[in-house]
Design a protein around this nucleic acid. Structure first.
Lengths: 226, 226
DNA sequence: TAGATTGTTAATCGATTAACAATC
DNA sequence: TAGATTGTTAATCGATTAACAATC
């Protein structure tokens, strides 16, 4: 999906190599592993100890053979006749994706959306911690969003450095999105998660990911209606 | 990404056929077309009249050659040396995706997230209209979310029929997600958009799409950190 | 015209899956 | 043991991209 990113060179021929040396995963594999991880995280919450490739397939919409193939490229994680141990597989996938570590987030915008994000566990479950919330509205400064107190925008630059923030989340009205993106970039953030549908102009070294629920829905609908 | 869906049979050999007869698009093409549409919609808002494949590539992270290839399978939509007309291309892609029509949504949950969704234009821009909002909390019933008045859950079944609702959006706490899904399914909704990370058990004929911002972020981060 | 950008080809590369042996 | 499910192969299929002619 993102051909501007480098690809690994030796491919299907030696998939194990991707796990051992630092070779990049293909985009498809990385995307699928992320989805497996999400389902496994939920399965763990439901106190499931083991899971089979066909159960995983049911929730990820990925073919069970491909799931086994994706996983077996990195090691023999399952038990024949039994399935995969949930905890163990979570650890393995986290290691493969290098996301066993913690990453710190700054959230910009303390309106309905910002508060919904700050109060949810979607990010926390995957090793992201919302360290700070900002808003330009003086009335919102000092109120609580999730577990943190909303700060004024002026604090952004200092907080990014002090708290080792790597990701900035934009949860403001679309009209303000570009201005906030500029502030985040100015403060040194290099990964932006954009919850508005506004196209953002940023320097080349900054990665923007835009959330597109309506696009996702369109895509789902296509297969429903066809 | 979803091998349980049928695929079209004759593929790259006669791409034009996919536009003319009712043949299914491949999943990759449908996903990419949806993203082009999103960027085009935003470009239109910014009063852009034409756009080149390389500009489209910049915002979608899809290779410009592939964009031209995807589009040329359905017709000659561009002008050499000039680019694509934004309005015209939007119409064409909508026609290809069969999403020129309007679809009605019922939103369940009028908390921060529900209000954020109801008040935003992300769905409206793509032909979705939020016809009704529901909540189990009696205190929220009667208040406004976006442009609609919050109804009690008891009204769900009747509203789904009366308003021709095809999509149900779940924006309640994760703990209540399964119960709401059951209610939506009972009311006849066959497409569910799940904003919680809870795995939902639904009948086979119901399509569930789960929003996973943290997974998206993990995926983006992988390429940043690698 | 000169420059730009599309449309298209041809070759490669990676993803997908059915099938089944291995083994828990 | 019998049943279940993984790990792996081999074949196919579709996606990707460089390159360039066509043409606005």
């Amino acid at each position: 999906m993102n051909p501007s990113q480098p690809k690994k060179k030796t491919a299907a021929s030696s998939p194990i190599a991707a796990g051992l040396d630092g070779e990049r995963l293909s985009l498809g594999v990385a995307a699928r592993l992320s989805r497996y991880l999400q389902v496994l995280t939920q399965a763990k919450k439901m106190d499931k100890e083991k899971i089979s490739s066909s159960e995983l397939a049911r929730f990820t919409h990925v073919n069970p053979t491909q799931i086994r193939r994706d996983l077996s490229g990195f090691g023999k994680f399952g038990k024949r006749g039994v399935g995969y141990n949930v905890d163990f597989l979570i650890d393995q996938i986290r290691a493969i994706l290098h996301t066993a570590a913690k990453y710190n987030i700054a959230l910009f915008g303390a309106g309905h959306l910002g508060k919904a994000i700050a109060g949810s566990e979607v990010f926390a479950d995957h090793g992201f911690e919302i360290k700070a919330v900002f808003d330009n509205d003086a009335k919102k400064v000092g109120t609580k969003a999730g577990n943190v107190v909303v700060q004024p925008a002026e604090e952004l630059r200092k907080t990014v450095i002090d708290e080792d923030i790597v990701v900035g989340v934009i949860a403001v009205p679309a009209a303000n999105a570009q201005a906030v993106a500029d502030e985040l970039v100015g403060a040194g953030v290099t990964i932006i998660f954009n919850y508005t549908d506004r196209l953002l102009d940023v320097p080349q070294e900054v990665t923007v990911h835009t959330s597109s629920p309506a696009v996702d829905l369109l895509y789902a609908l296509y297969f429903y209606l066809a």
